[in-house]
Simulated assay, not measured.
Amino acid sequence: MIGINGWELVVILVIAMFVIGPERLPVYAEQLGSLVRRGRDLLQSAKSRVDDELGPEFNDVDWSKLDPRQYDPRKIVRDALLDDSPPSTPTRSAAARAAEQDDRPTASAGMVAEPGKAPYDDEAT
Rank of each mutant, 00 (worst) to 15 (best):
A118N: 09
S93R: 07
V27N: 01
G110V: 05
I15V: 14
D83Q: 09
L43H: 06
T125M: 05
V10P: 01
G116V: 01
G6A: 14
Y28T: 02
L35V: 02
V112S: 07
S93A: 08
R104S: 15
G21A: 10
L35W: 11
P115K: 11
V77A: 09
L82T: 08
M1Y: 10
V77W: 08
A98S: 13
P22H: 03
L81S: 03
R92C: 04
D72V: 15
P86H: 01
D79M: 05
W7E: 12
D103K: 08
Q44R: 12
R104K: 15
T106G: 04
E123D: 08
L32Q: 09
Q70V: 15
E23S: 11
P115W: 07
V11C: 04
L32Y: 10
S45K: 11
S88K: 10
D103H: 07
S88F: 00
P73C: 03
E100G: 13
L82G: 01
D72S: 15
M111E: 11
L13D: 05
E114N: 08
L32D: 02
L81W: 03
D60F: 03
L25S: 06
G116P: 02
T106K: 03
L43I: 06
D103S: 12
D62N: 13
I15C: 02
V77I: 15
A107D: 11
E123Y: 04
A29Y: 09
V36N: 10
T91H: 05
I12P: 00
Y28S: 01
P73L: 10
G3I: 07
P26G: 03
M1E: 13
A107H: 11
D72A: 11
L35K: 10
Q44T: 05
L42W: 09
R24P: 01
P115Q: 11
R38M: 10
A94D: 06
A98N: 10
A124R: 13
R49F: 07
N5G: 14
N5P: 05
D67C: 12
G6E: 13
A109H: 12
L25Y: 04
Y120E: 09
D72C: 15
T106D: 06
E23L: 14
V61W: 06
P22E: 01
Y71D: 06
I76P: 01
L82W: 03
A29S: 13
E123N: 07
V19D: 04
G116K: 01
A95L: 13
Y71I: 15
E30R: 14
L42H: 09
E114L: 08
D83F: 03
E123G: 01
V61M: 08
A98K: 12
K65N: 02
T125N: 09
E100R: 11
V10K: 13
G21N: 08
A94V: 05
A16D: 04
A95P: 00
P105T: 11
L81T: 06
L25N: 00
Q101T: 09
A16E: 03
L43W: 01
D67K: 12
G116Q: 04
E57D: 15
D102F: 07
